[in-house]
Simulated assay, not measured.
Amino acid sequence: MSSHDPSLVYTGIIIEEDSLTLGELCKACCVHADWVLGLVEEGILEPHGTEIRLWRFSGSNLVRVRSALRLQRDLGVNLSGIGLILDLVEELENLRIQLKMTGHIREDQPKP
């Protein structure tokens, strides 16, 4: 087992500099490549590279796939809905960061 084996990452910090191939991403998330291709077609994931065999996925893509999988599995959300939900969650997190930076929200303040 190498320390770069993505299947060993269950929780923890995602290192953005690491990149995963399509196969590694699928293995890490226990999904089929066709499902990941659907996420790419919907614009949910944006791999780096021009050809499928050259695609590389970032750590944030790994997080998005796992979130998408939970939305579909647990709530029955379709791919279009998954894209919308993930974009809104990301926007909400960015707004929270901006509010913290401007001092309008404290770190210890509970999330609504």
Rank of each mutant, 00 (worst) to 15 (best):
S60W: 11
R66Q: 12
G76W: 03
E17W: 12
W35T: 07
D34A: 01
G43E: 04
L37P: 00
Q72S: 05
G49Y: 06
V31S: 03
E17R: 13
H104F: 14
L54T: 08
I97T: 15
I52F: 01
H48T: 11
L95F: 10
E51A: 09
S3V: 13
D5E: 11
G83S: 01
G83V: 01
R96E: 12
L99E: 15
V77C: 03
L69G: 00
S80C: 14
D74L: 08
L71W: 04
L92Y: 12
I105F: 11
L20N: 04
E90A: 15
L69A: 07
S7R: 11
C26N: 07
I15D: 15
L95M: 10
E93W: 09
L37H: 08
T11F: 15
H48D: 13
Y10A: 05
R70D: 11
I82Y: 03
L88T: 03
D18P: 00
Q72P: 03
P112S: 08
R56H: 07
E16D: 15
P110Y: 01
H4Q: 15
R66G: 09
D87F: 02
R73G: 00
Y10V: 11
L8V: 04
G38R: 01
I44S: 05
S58T: 08
C26P: 10
G12Q: 05
E41C: 00
E24H: 02
S19K: 09
S58G: 07
A28W: 06
D108K: 14
N78D: 14
E93L: 09
V9K: 11
R106M: 09
L86E: 09
Q109R: 13
E16A: 07
L25P: 05
E16W: 00
M101W: 11
L95V: 12
